[in-house]
């Protein structure tokens, strides 16, 4: 399957090359961007989206920042538990659990 990436410079388009922000077309595009990023759209819709993105700098920048957002989320790691914290938590859980288990 082809990479679903915006193609800057390709302006062969059946639709107006730019759309005003807030226009109905924006909402159509916006609705599908996650599915596009996740490679979940049928090829014909992808092709239509690619055409639009190639022709519309605003949407292209927008999808770029949405992609960056997803990439950052995927790589964000919280600080891990230390060995001490892991052991301490285990003790706390067992202390809480045991009295209840007897009753």
């Amino acid at each position: 399957m082809s990479r679903k990436k915006a193609l800057p410079g390709r302006t062969r388009s059946v639709e107006p090359p730019h759309h005003a922000p807030g226009e109905h077309r924006c909402l159509d595009i916006l609705r599908q961007l996650s599915a596009y990023i996740d490679d979940e759209l049928p090829e014909d819709i992808c092709a239509e989206l690619r055409r639009h993105l190639g022709a519309c700098p605003n949407c292209e920048v927008f999808i770029g920042s949405l992609r960056d957002t997803v990439t950052l989320c995927r790589h964000h790691q919280p600080p891990p538990l230390s060995a001490y914290e892991r052991a301490q938590l285990r003790e706390q859980i067992l202390r809480t659990w045991k009295p209840k288990a007897r009753s």
Partner: peptide
């Protein structure tokens, strides 16, 4: 709501994450 995320200005459209 999805409508709430439609940029209402060119500037809003073109906001980027500087990475």
């Amino acid at each position: 709501s999805l409508e709430g995320f439609v940029p209402t200005s060119e500037g809003e459209f073109r906001l980027q994450i500087p990475i």
